[in-house]
Write a protein that binds this DNA or RNA. Structure first.
Length: 637
RNA sequence: GCCGACGUAGCUCAAUUGGCAGAGCAACUGAAUCGUAAUCAGUAGGUUGUAGGUUCGAUUCCUAUCGUCGGCACCA
């Protein structure tokens, strides 16, 4: 394949061609940054810093790097359009991100999303002019002169050493490492999405810049598919569905304090009861600790000093109390209520613990971020030798819930010791991190590392669930705690009759019931599997007088085996009631007419289907019951 | 908390330049008794989030406040 290099020379490139090959054929300065890029069978060239090993990779539009590069180009294109439309604007940073790109800027005049069409038109116009994107390396001094009017770029340059690369396209020049395509023409399928405020350098002490989010793809089809997915996410929004399906509400009298409505309560209690059954079977004891405890306890746990601003406090009889933001101090008081020998360990102590945290007003969001929620918490006290196997048991439990019950895939992250703020010795940290990692590897699981992201008191594993519309949610977490056993002086007696400290683990599966239900609503788009559906069977008598008795008999028979059925005998046509049952996303709509009444039959129609099946009442009820118990009777093997 | 947008009937949304606050669905009443996604007619429903201000007149303009949404920061 022949490519044209930026200096006008051509070069034949074959699969397997390396950067070194390129370097030997062209001028060394240029060779540092040449790469062939194949798109739809056509070859384009672009700049790319030579990797250390000298190996170049021939990229195609299927490679994620290429899409990121296109989006990075798109952010420059946005900046180029902005500088043309709003001269005097100063620029922060503008990277490509997972689903698109953004650019942070200090705009010379305020803009809103209403200005997007105008900006997009300008971007397209600039794109079509195919401005060459030219890389140049300049000295720090020259860079400071070049960007002297832009305080943000100046600040970034001051932190750099050595030569500095800049990219120019038309009237816009950016401080940038690259890489980029050779000209602006590749960006024809982009869309600006939203504006937002973002602190300069991500620090809330700094000024807030205007961030414009957008996305870009190689073709219109992909862009349209992405926009369609955004629509789908909006349709699945748990706040919208929660209202429509009558699951929960949030009142202005209590921002962040969800109210559970009858149907939401059925869903929630179903999840809780299942959780309790599975945990009891897995050797957990269950406790419930008080919502409010005295200030001294929170001083002992350290919350009073570290977390005070987020706690709800109260004074009673001149004594200060705090509402629990976490369950662990309560759990440890329960542990201390008894005297343990090594033979008693591990103690697995579960609690569906309702906690209150005063989250910042701007952080609240539906059920995803609330101020009052229930953690499906458990604390495990074990010997150091038991640590790894206990972690493995927990991961087994997570697998059971996520994969077997909810069919949701996940990624695991191991968060390691923070750089500066940590307690304990390096040796203990290394051992603990290894135990967590080994437990995963021992189960054939891969994980990514989040360096320095552990809590000050210990490393942790985070489980991020991937929902059906491509978003990820952190739910499960296993945290090793090297702090609290010390603070609360937890002990057990070991084989040598010595008083020693147990290892303590915190873990949650659902994370918070509230958030998990929010995730489930969106994951299932409100159409819950039968075992979770608040109403499982909607019974529709064709005639509201002749068929009522049999309809109620069916409801009674369903209730007798624990199924949730409702009769819709409202004075409406069947089609109307069928529609309502579908809108309510009830798993089974059952029509009862003469045929069914006379033959002790039911004609059912599963949710989302137009299929009609007529079977005996008995086999229908058995079928639905089996569907429910197939899940609710599941236990970890 | 910060930046920006928004707040009208139970729900979804209209209301021209500042000039009588409206529709669909839901609810209620009546008729129709109907076999798989909306039967017809009627009735009722509002201190336009709240509190001030400007104005002859405010859903509309201004200020404050509460809340919601998109982000940011936060999530020990």
């Amino acid at each position: 394949m022949i490519i044209t290099l930026p200096d006008g020379k051509t070069m034949n490139l074959k699969a397997g061609t390396t950067g070194l090959d390129v370097a030997t054929q062209i001028s060394p300065s240029l060779a540092k940054r040449v790469l062939a890029y194949a798109l739809d069978g056509q070859l384009f060239d672009l700049y790319w810093p030579i990797p250390k090993d000298g190996q170049f990779k021939l990229l195609t539009d299927k490679d994620p790097e290429t899409l990121m590069m296109l989006r990075h180009d798109a952010s420059h294109l946005l900046a180029q359009a902005i500088i043309a439309l709003y001269p005097g604007t100063k620029f922060g940073v503008g990277p490509a991100i997972d689903e698109g790109f953004y650019y942070d800027m200090d705009l010379s005049q305020p803009i809103s999303e209403e200005d997007f069409p105008r900006i997009e038109t300008k971007m397209l116009e600039l794109s079509k002019q195919a401005f060459p994107i030219v890389r140049k390396e300049i000295s720090k001094q020259d860079a400071l002169t070049l960007f002297k009017d832009d305080p943000y770029k100046t600040e970034m340059i001051q932190a750099l050493t050595g030569t500095i690369s800049i990219y120019t396209q038309g009237a816009f020049t950016d401080l940038c490492l690259g890489p980029h395509f050779i000209n602006t023409s590749y960006n024809q399928n982009f869309k600006l999405l939203t504006t937002a405020g973002a602190y300069w350098r991500g620090d809330s002490k700094n000024k807030q810049l205007t961030r414009i989010y957008g996305t870009a793809f190689f073709n219109k089809k992909d862009l349209d598919a992405y926009v369609a997915m955004l629509e789908e996410r909006k349709k699945r929004d748990h706040r919208k569905l929660g209202k429509e399906l009558g699951l929960f509400m949030i009142s202005d009298y209590g921002p962040g304090f969800p109210f559970w409505l009858n149907k939401g309560m059925i869903l929630r209690k179903t999840l809780e009861n299942f959780w309790i059954d599975v945990h009891r079977a897995a050797g957990y004891q269950l406790v419930q600790t008080p919502t409010m405890l005295s200030k001294e306890l929170w001083e002992t746990s350290g919350h009073w000093f570290n977390y005070r601003d987020n706690m709800y406090v109260s004074e009673v009889d001149e004594k200060e109390y705090a509402i629990k933001p976490m369950n662990c101090p309560g759990s440890m008081l329960v542990y201390k209520n008894e005297f343990y020998s090594y033979k008693d360990l591990p103690i697995r102590m579960g609690e569906l613990g309702n906690v209150h945290r005063h989250e910042a007003s701007g952080a609240l969001s539906g059920l995803f971020r609330v101020r009052n929620f229930t953690q499906d918490d458990a604390h495990i006290y074990c010997t150091p030798e038991q640590l790894e196997s206990e972690v493995r048991e927990i991961v087994k439990l997570f697998d059971f819930f996520y994969k077997k019950v909810f069919h949701i895939d996940y990624d695991v992250y191991l968060s390691t010791r923070p750089e500066n703020k940590y307690i304990g010795t390096l040796e203990t940290w290394a051992k603990s991190e290894k135990a967590l990692g080994d437990a995963l590897t021992g189960m054939g699981k891969t994980f990514k590392i989040n360096p320095g992201d552990g809590a000050f008191y210990g490393p942790k594993l985070d489980f991020k669930l991937k929902d059906s519309v491509g978003r990820t949610w952190q739910c499960g977490t296993v945290q090793l705690d090297m702090n609290n056993p010390e603070r609360f002086d937890l002990t057990y007696i070991n084989e040598k009759n010595e008083k020693v400290r147990p290892v303590m683990l915190h873990r949650v599966v659902y994370g918070s019931l509230e958030r998990f239900i929010g995730i489930l609503i969106e994951h299932y788009a409100g159409a819950f599997p039968t075992w979770l559906a608040p109403v499982q069977i909607k019974i529709l008598p064709v005639n509201q007088s002749f068929h009522l008795d049999y309809s109620y008999a069916l409801k009674k028979a369903a209730a007798a085996i624990g199924l949730r059925a409702e009769v819709d005998a409202s004075n409406e046509k069947l089609g109307y009631r069928i529609r309502n049952a579908q809108v309510e996303k009830v798993p089974y709509s059952v029509v009862i007419g003469d045929k069914e009444r006379d033959g002790q039959l039911v004609t059912y129609r599963p949710y989302g289907s137009e299929e009609q099946v007529t079977i005996s009442m008995e086999s229908f009820l058995q079928k639905v019951q089996k569907e429910v118990t197939d899940i609710t009777h599941l236990r970890i093997e």
